[in-house]
Design a protein around this nucleic acid. Structure first.
Lengths: 182, 182
DNA sequence: AACGCGTGAGACGTCACTGTCTCATTCGGG
DNA sequence: CCCGAATGAGACAGTGACGTCTCACGCGTT
């Protein structure tokens, strides 16, 4: 009986990632509930978006924690990061495109997560296994871009879901690693 | 006196990439003209979007032609592709996000350009300089994703425009190339 | 000067979406 | 069994954007 808020948010993220202009009615239908019920659980469109950001960031942060980014070398940390974050790629794709929508008005929690990822790349550069002619900031942006592109490619069948993680990790690590070793 | 259609489209692309829900009034203001004049040159929002797609695809195709993708090795072809396409990255970023907006209803010309890029990656794989565990389809998607992420990163100053091309090329080529050689 | 073209400003009706409401229905627990 | 909570369906006015229109102005041409 009780609506699964998390399920609604997940469906909403999927729809809004594909179609940023989706109406509340479309979102409700995508989640399998009526527009009235959607409004009962989320005060309005703004509240829905905010909840979406909160849940996405929370899950992403949880993935970052689980990845133990400080342990081992940076390459392994990145692999663990992608493996842990894989279930929330859809949310991340939404967050990335949404951050573009609200120019300047970004969620305060985003900076913190951004810094943690940035730190991994910087550590990799300091350890000498990542090339230094690509800034850690760019590598972070590239990670988001690849996740977004990957989530989209999976969505309409151009990439198999089981290959997604390997595809992103190998491309990003191959591009970031110094070509000398190995 | 006569409005520069191309300038209007360029401004519109820039604005719509950042804010997909921008109103016709906002687009007009961004282009420095009135809403009335905008409607005189483009029958409506749909027509504007269509014109945007047409111009973006035409410029992108022109870049592909100039890059002589069939000459030399695949790595060089990709470098030339990125160099030639660099001025139209903003348009491409728009096209990528816009293709997501109209699910299924994609521009017919896109397939052709997509196939040309895909062919470069496939050729690189057949020539043995690109790894084969990453599908050419994924590499193509990754190219779009990196261009989109790069254009966005440049837009709000996280990456210098002069570094953009190098950043994308090195990351993509580094990730795509077989790590054995060089 | 007179004319015409393109533009800016604004008014207007239309339409889709929003947010809130009411009412009937259903499902589960006491 | 009955009651209450949650849902679905629909009505309602408010809002904003859209597309079209008219009118006045600026500017170049004849």
């Amino acid at each position: 009986m009780a609506v699964d808020r998390e399920h609604v948010l997940k469906e909403a993220a999927g729809l809004l990632t594909r179609k940023a202009t989706a109406s509340m009615d479309e979102i409700a239908k995508a989640a399998g509930i009526s527009r009235a019920t959607l409004h009962r659980h989320f005060a309005g469109r703004d509240a829905l978006i905010r909840a979406l950001e909160d849940l996405g960031l929370a899950q992403f942060e949880q993935a970052l924690d689980a990845a133990r980014l400080d342990e081992g070398d940076a390459v392994g940390a990145l692999r663990r990061l992608l493996a842990e974050a894989e279930p929330v790629f859809a949310f991340m794709a939404f967050l990335c495109t949404e951050n573009q929508l609200f120019e300047g008005d970004l969620h305060e929690g985003w900076d913190r997560l951004d810094a943690r990822i940035n730190a991994v790349f910087r550590r990799g550069q300091e350890e000498g296994c990542f090339r230094i002619d690509l800034s850690s900031v760019w590598l972070t942006e590239a990670l988001y871009g690849l996740i977004g592109a990957g989530a989209w490619a999976v969505h309409d069948g151009r990439v198999a879901r089981k290959d997604l993680n390997h595809s992103i990790a190998e491309l990003l690590l191959g591009g970031a690693r110094r070509s000398m070793e190995k």
